[in-house]
Design a protein around this nucleic acid. Sequence first.
DNA 1: CGTTGGCACTCAATTCTACCGAGTGCCAAC
DNA 2: GTTGGCACTCGGTAGAATTGAGTGCCAACG
Lengths: 349, 349
Amino acid sequence: MARRTTKIIDPGGDLDARKASILEAVVAEHIDTAQPVGSTSVAHSRDVSVSPATVRSEMVTLEREGYLAQPHTSAGRVPTDKGYRYFVDHLKSGVMSSAQQHQVGEFFANVRGEVEDVLEQTSTLLSQLTNYTSMVVASGHSHATILSVQLVSMDARHQLLVSVFSDGAVIKHGVTSDFDATYEEVSEASRQLNALLLATSLESRVQVPSRHDHVATLVRESVSVLHAEKPTTDGEQVFIGGSSHVAEVFDGVETVRKVLGILEQELLVVTLVQDILDQGLSVAIGSEHGYEPLSSCAVIVAPVSIDGEPAGAVGLLGPTRMKYREALAAAGVVSQQLTRHFGGEDDLA
Amino acid sequence: MARRTTKIIDPGGDLDARKASILEAVVAEHIDTAQPVGSTSVAHSRDVSVSPATVRSEMVTLEREGYLAQPHTSAGRVPTDKGYRYFVDHLKSGVMSSAQQHQVGEFFANVRGEVEDVLEQTSTLLSQLTNYTSMVVASGHSHATILSVQLVSMDARHQLLVSVFSDGAVIKHGVTSDFDATYEEVSEASRQLNALLLATSLESRVQVPSRHDHVATLVRESVSVLHAEKPTTDGEQVFIGGSSHVAEVFDGVETVRKVLGILEQELLVVTLVQDILDQGLSVAIGSEHGYEPLSSCAVIVAPVSIDGEPAGAVGLLGPTRMKYREALAAAGVVSQQLTRHFGGEDDLA
DNA sequence: CGTTGGCACTCAATTCTACCGAGTGCCAAC
DNA sequence: GTTGGCACTCGGTAGAATTGAGTGCCAACG
C-alpha cells in the first residue's frame, strides 16, 4: 500500500516496538493538538506503559535518529517529515465513518451529467469529506482515437473544428482562412477530414493534401491546428475543490499565499500529482515531492483507472500534520468509487 | 462613469470643498497605510491648507454624517463604506502606468487560441496588473442559435450529442439508450436532429417525433437532454485569477476563508457580478452588494460587449481599502480591449 | 542493567506595570 | 471662523517578574 520512497536510506530498518509506540503516540497527539508533545502525555497514552523518564530517554534517541525534533530546549517534541513517514508507513488502514460512507454512496448513486461535471463535483465531495483541499486530475486523451471531426462554418472566413474522441472528450479549435470559403467547400473539407483522421490518435502522423485550392487549405489548416494541441499539455484537466480550506489549515499568511499560488497553476498540480504517482507513493510528505513552496504540506494521491488503464487520480492537500488515516481512507474510497463509476454501467465513458 | 446606487439617500447632497478635500485625504492615506489617519497628517497633505485643529472639527462633522469612523477614542479616523463611496464617486479617472499599458497591449497583440483560453489568460493578466483577485465572466449562450448538432456513437447504447452554437460555444451531452442502436439509426437521428434544431435557440420549443422506433427515441432523448441545459445556469463561464492575492490583501484567517469560500462557488460569483452591473454600478463597496461574507470587500466590475450586445464582464475583488484609481483603470482598459478583441478582426467569435 | 522518581534547570508564554505618544476634544485668543 | 495651547485618553510597546510545561541528569531500586 504505502511504500517508502527510494530516496530515504532507512538506516537501521524498523524501530523496536517501544520506540515505535512512542513515535506513534507523539505523531498522533501532535496531529491532534498542533502542539509539541511532552513525555508525560506520551507515557499516559495507551500502547505506552513506561514512565515519563523512560519515554524521555527514548525520545532523545528518536531525535538523534531524525524522527523527532525539538522546537527549542525545554519544549516537547514534534515529528519530522521522517517521523510522519514512519507513521504513515505503519498506519493500519482506517475506515470511514458510516455516515461518510453513506454520503459517498449517496453521491455516486445520484451523480449524473458529463464526465467533467462528475469530476468537478467529486472534488467538492472529497474536500467536504476531509476538510482539506482536493484535486481531481483526469489524464489527457493523447492516445484516444478520433471518432468524428466536423468543420462548422461560423462565417465566410471563420470555421470551427469540432473533434470527438473515443474517451468522450470533445474539443474545438478555431480555423481562420484568408479567403471566403463557400458552404460546399467547408462541407467537403469536413468530409475529407473525417476520412483522414477517423480512428487516428493525436500522435499519429497523417498525410495532408498539398494542393492549393480552398478545400485542401482548409484541411491542412485544420489538421495542423488539431495536432498543435499536444505540446501544451496532454489535455489533462484538473478540478480543485475546497481551496478555502487552505486558509484554515495552514497558519501564516505567507504559507497560505504560496500554496494558493501553486494551486492556481493547473499544470503544476498535474505534474505534482503525476510525480508522486510515478514515485509509487500514495503520500508525499514535506519535501518528498521536491516542491519547495509545499514543504509544509502533505499530499495524498490515489490513482483512478478506467478499464484497467490509468485515467487520472484524486488527491488531497493538507498540512504535514494532516489526519492521514481519515484522509487516506477518503481518497481511497473515492478513487475506488470513481473507478467503478466509470467502469460499470454509466451514461457516458 | 461611477454612479451612486439608488439605495443611498445622499443626505445634504455634496460636501463643501473643504470637507471633500479632508475626506479625500483621509481615504487616500488610509488606503496607503492601512492605519487610522490623524488630523495632523491630513492638515499637511496638499489640497488641505488649514490647521490640524480645523481639520479635527471638520472630522467630527464628517463622522457625524457617517463618512468617517473612529476605531476608538484617541485614534485617528477611518473611512466608512459611505466615505469610500464618496471618494470613488468623485475620483477623476486615472490612467495606467505606461509600463502597464504596454503590458496590456503586448498581451492582446499576442493572445490566440479559443475564447475560453483568452478569457482565462485575461483573468491572470488582470490579477497581475492589480495584485487583486480577478473575475472574468462570459455570459451564457441561451439566445445563441444552433449551427450544427451531431450525434456520435460511442458504443451501441451510448451516444454523444455535440452541439455547436453561433457564438462559438460547443457543448456535449451524453445520450443513453436502452436498446442497441445501429450505426445507421444514429446517423439518421443525427440528420433529423439537424433538420429539427438548426437555427433554433435553446429557448425555442421544437416539435419532436412521437413515434416509438429507435430513431425517434434517440431524437427525443437528444432534444430533451439538450434543452435540459438551460435551467441550471445560462451557461455562463467564470474564470478566476490570482486567488492567492486574497491571502495577502485581507487580514484575518476567517475573512480569507470566507472570501475563498465565495470564490469557489462559480454561480455565486456570476450572480454577484451580474447584480452589481444591474444596479448600474461599477464599484460595490462593503455591504452595497448585499453579500454579508464580502462586507469587507470592494468589487469592481466593467462590462464587456460583443457587437453592442452585453457579453460578460471583468471584475476585481479587493479590500474596501483597495487602490480604486489603479484598479478601475485596469478593469476599464482590459474590458475595453476585450471588447475590441472580440469585436474586430479575430480568429473566432 | 534497564527503569524510575526526584530535582534542578531552561525557556517560551503570560501577566503586570510603567510609560510613551499619537491623537482627540475643548477652550480661550486672535 | 480659525488657530494654538492644553489636558486627557487609550492603544501599543518595552521590560521585569512570574508561571509552568518540559527537559536532562542522576541516584536508587528491582
